[in-house]
């Protein structure tokens, strides 16, 4: 049983946390006239479960040597991570206002200069190899922390991910969890129409991973999977999270255009009202 020095501040109400992540993400993207809000909304629930309960991390010691390492490989969804870091006190809430502004540390792809962020990404297919290196280092040193990498679905077109998938299984990295944000929509069209990944579950099993599928918006299911790690001794874990791009804002859901567009102030108010309403219904 490992020490859990970080649990004091947790667990949080993850549904409330997810709501705040969505609100902050929408506000940041609107203010900065930035892109990728659909990608951020897709992972808001995953981020809430990670930062609200599953990750062992401490805002007062963001570089704690025993912390779990979280790597966002789909760096374009960074507003969801920045919001989670702000809502869990790694960074000041007020600093979110500087997102994308000249001189800010909040780059519009995730930056390691932000306290709590392990690794800068933006080019796809980098998070899993890097996380695999961390997991290997942890194994070689018999450390108890885990590495969690969140990838998109489209980025599994990158060969580097498959190289890392081979390596992690070959080296029995059961301290590595990859969450695949499977919203099934990439930059122009659906994954199926672009570069087919199916059958994904059996593909990862064939690669030697332990594989589970969950509804990526069901906090209980996400938490069970993440907190139940390792699932199988000697196997890295692939959590296929079925999600909806733009989740929580009806006019953004499953719409490619919200990979690019930013809301007008009027649309922002509509979106915020929907998100607040959805949570009060829950």
């Amino acid at each position: 049983m490992r020490e859990a020095p970080f649990v004091a501040a947790k667990p949080q109400d993850t549904y409330l946390l997810a709501q705040r992540i969505r609100e902050q993400a929408l506000r940041m993207v609107t203010r900065a006239k930035a892109s990728h809000v659909g990608s951020a909304l897709s992972i808001a629930d995953i981020m809430a479960v990670l930062y609200g309960r599953a990750l062992r991390v401490d805002p007062d010691a963001p570089r704690h040597p025993e912390r779990d390492r979280f790597i966002l490989s789909k760096g374009h969804a960074c507003v969801a991570v920045y919001a989670a870091l702000a809502e869990t006190r790694f960074i000041e809430r007020a600093s979110l206002e500087t997102y994308g502004v000249n001189g800010s540390i909040l780059m519009a792809h995730i930056s390691h200069k932000v306290p709590g962020a392990e690794f800068s990404t933006g080019a796809l297919g980098h998070g899993l190899p890097f996380g695999t290196g961390k997991a290997l280092a942890g194994k070689r040193r018999e450390a108890s922390w885990r590495t969690v990498v969140l990838t998109s679905d489209g980025e599994w077109g990158e060969g580097s991910n498959w190289e890392a998938a081979l390596f992690a299984a070959h080296h029995n990295l059961d301290n590595l969890i990859c969450i695949l944000d499977y919203n099934k929509l990439q930059s122009l069209k659906t994954v199926d129409e672009t570069l087919r990944l199916e059958p994904l579950h059996s593909k990862f099993e064939a690669f030697g991973w332990a594989v589970r599928e969950v509804d990526g918006h069901d906090h209980g299911a996400l938490a069970d999977a993440l907190e139940g790690a390792p699932w199988e001794a000697g196997k890295p874990m692939m959590l296929i999270a079925h999600t909806i791009k733009g989740k929580g804002v009806s006019f953004m859901e499953n719409k490619v255009e919200w990979h690019y567009r930013n809301p007008t102030p009027e649309l922002l108010e509509v979106a915020l009202a929907e998100i607040a309403g959805a949570n009060s219904d829950a």
Binding site: E118, F119, G125, L128, F130, T132, G133, L136, S160, L166
Partner: peptide, 18 residues
């Protein structure tokens, strides 16, 4: 790391970060 230089290099960075 096998014949997989992209992973070899990303992996090296991950280990270096530790």
């Amino acid at each position: 790391a096998g014949v997989a230089e992209q992973n070899m290099t990303g992996l090296a960075a991950g280990m270096a970060s530790e």
